[in-house]
Design a protein around this nucleic acid. Structure first.
Lengths: 218, 218
DNA sequence: TGTACATCAGTGAACGCGCGTTCACTGATGTAC
DNA sequence: TGTACATCAGTGAACGCGCGTTCACTGATGTAC
């Protein structure tokens, strides 16, 4: 009962040269596009080569295996999350009170994370989803313009909180795991879990409630 | 570079009768076993029939499709989570103070959830993992001896908290989503995420910290 | 500036894989008379 | 109590699928002399 939808495929670029020019990049971009619309399982090597207008095995000049391509896509997805967080952070107005500013920063981090999960679900699942293979290491992706990954961005915001005196230093260790847990969990309940399909305003409200809880609870 | 490990297969039961007797149950149990050791993707119809000592298409007498089998396995996994929570709940001593008892109940729920995630990772991922197909409905699984699913168990504990005066009633709505988010997120960071491989005492400590945060933050 | 040659990006053809699923069947069971 | 027959659980054989990956190749590039 599997519907076979014949999506109109992007016409392969009809290369005139024998060499592609920048195949590695093209494959990576195709991979990211696949991940964007279908999550990590959708990153299919053959499809990436099709989109790049190249024969399947050509990929092996640039990636050792499908896993290697997926790894690169994962890193890119992680960078995208970081960028989204930084954007949210930048949108924050830093008025006077440093404690207030620090709290706002933490909230921005969380909000950016949740927003990304909802608007770029495929990439989000690619960045943070279960590793397909047990033995694939997490991608070492410094990312975003700050060069920090999402986890480090959160850490920085929490440090800011401590510096502003809004979080007792003895509560700092491990705090990123607690905050991350809460936000990550909500993101998954929304995109994959029982909250799927809940209207955006409601999930946003829930997100704010959650951030309240974290703020108070830390 | 894929290792092909030849796991010693459980010898099929060598049926003497033509009829199997209880194939549906056998397939379900095989499916659960597969999920236990490999998560939802490991629930492979052909493998289940192999283990039941039956030809592949025999499965179709009892399940309309692989999806249907997986759905049944999911329901069983959900029931197992509920049972684990109830066990943790039962282990709690109910001394005098009802507020204290209610708090202990909530913690027990959370602890049971986290413990299950760590000891039965495959089943946990099957119960709560991303749906393979967009259109598969969540399994309607009343479960455990109480007949409540994990979500309902949490709800009941929170109600108890309100009844004991330990949680203002106006904070009650949506509280299960917040608490669940936190615990669910931590579970995933531990089993799939950056906390993978962290020693058990540390994850347990983190779990308790997290429950502190939830308790205070709600 | 011109030619020889090493380099290596992309081609063409083919594999084996295990999966879910369909078809037409056969054998055992239990029910109606 | 005995027989005919409908029911339906399990069999046997086969499909098409798209995937990742390997092999031996060919064509364009750029570098050394």
């Amino acid at each position: 009962m599997e519907l076979k939808m014949s999506v109109p495929r992007p016409v392969p670029p009809a290369r005139s040269t024998y060499r592609h020019g920048d195949l590695r990049r093209a494959l990576l971009e195709a991979g990211v596009e696949l991940a964007r619309s279908g999550g990590p399982e959708a990153v299919v090597l053959r499809e990436a080569t099709r989109r790049a207008g190249v024969v399947p095995n050509a990929a092996y000049r640039h990636f050792a295996s499908r896993q290697a391509l997926l790894q690169a896509v994962r890193a890119a997805a992680l960078a995208a999350v970081a960028t989204a967080m930084e954007a949210e952070l930048a949108a924050q107005r830093t008025d006077g009170d440093p404690a207030e500013a620090a709290r706002a920063a933490v909230r921005a981090i969380g909000t950016g994370y949740l927003r990304f999960a909802q608007t770029e679900t495929g990439l989000f699942r690619t960045a943070f989803g279960a590793p397909v293979d047990v033995e694939d290491a997490p991608p070492e992706a410094k990312s975003g313009q700050s060069g920090l990954n999402p986890f480090e961005l959160l850490g920085a915001a929490l440090d800011q909180l401590v510096a502003a005196g809004a979080l007792p230093p003895e509560r700092r260790p491990g705090a990123e795991f607690l905050a991350w847990s809460a936000v990550h969990g909500l993101a998954l309940l929304i995109i994959d879990g029982p909250l799927r399909g809940m209207p955006r305003e409601q999930t946003d409200a829930l997100g704010q409630q959650l951030l309240d809880m974290v703020e108070k609870g830390l």
